[in-house]
Nucleic acid binder design. Structure first.
Length: 211
DNA sequence: CTCTTGATCTTCT
DNA sequence: GAAGATCAAGAGC
């Protein structure tokens, strides 16, 4: 009965199998500006497949880059409900993107998950995405939903119940921040956060010399 | 390496 | 009709 499953190969983090405690709804029922940077280093799994969150962006109802800015629509409805659920939307008619809904009900805000460092179920992710090196498997909001098979059927699902698991980080990492990517409104707000020096980002941070 | 373009769904003007 | 919280492939340097 002593069946040993070897830990998954990981190149920079060597204790990826030791996850922190599950994050529950109360974690998300706070300001997006607190939650977003705290998600860096957390592990996100869908049906056991996923990795370490290395890049996120905060969006809030009060600023025009947010989908919730103009009030509820069929698409953005879940952001106007209770926190701790997924908001999944179709991007450019092609991709899906996933957000974590935050703040007490009544304030529509969410954190866009932009990149993961793959740790769990890497073969499944490669299969879903075609042949890709580990570095680019989840290095963008539309890429990681492909790798984790996230679609609109995950819209509104609780983040603390199957098939989704979010595990807290065990130590606070160094965080980089800067302007959000791919938007044309409220470009001055530095609400993008990332794991400093990570090779798995969608794009390097301005002041973070990589390589 | 950078730049351009096609793919094509939802919302807004 | 146009724009958009994107990506991959191809051209050019």
């Amino acid at each position: 009965m002593t069946k040993h499953t070897p830990p998954p190969a990981s190149d920079t983090v060597n204790s990826v199998t030791r996850l922190g405690k599950r994050l529950n709804r109360s974690f998300f029922a706070r300001s997006v500006h607190e939650v977003a940077p705290e998600l860096i280093g957390a592990t996100m799994l869908v049906d056991g497949v996923g990795g370490i969150i290395v890049e996120v962006e905060a969006y809030h109802q009060s600023e025009p880059a947010a989908h919730s800015y103009r009030g509820p629509t069929p698409r953005t409805m879940v952001m106007f409900g209770p926190p701790g659920v997924a908001y999944v939307y179709r991007s450019y008619g092609i991709h899906w993107c996933i957000n974590f809904v935050c703040e007490p009900e009544g304030s529509a805000a969410a954190v866009l998950i932009r990149a993961l460092q793959p740790t769990h179920g890497i073969p499944a992710m490669r299969r879903r995405r075609g042949l890709h090196d580990e570095r680019t498997l989840c290095s963008g909001p539309g890429k990681l939903t492909g790798a984790l098979a996230i679609t609109n059927r995950h819209n509104g699902l609780a983040l603390d119940a199957p098939p989704i698991e979010i595990h807290a980080r065990r130590e606070a990492p160094e965080i980089a921040s800067g302007p959000r990517i791919g938007i044309t409104k409220a470009v001055e707000l530095p609400w993008r956060y990332g794991l400093k020096g990570s090779r798995f980002l969608s794009k390097a941070f301005p002041d973070d010399k990589l390589r």
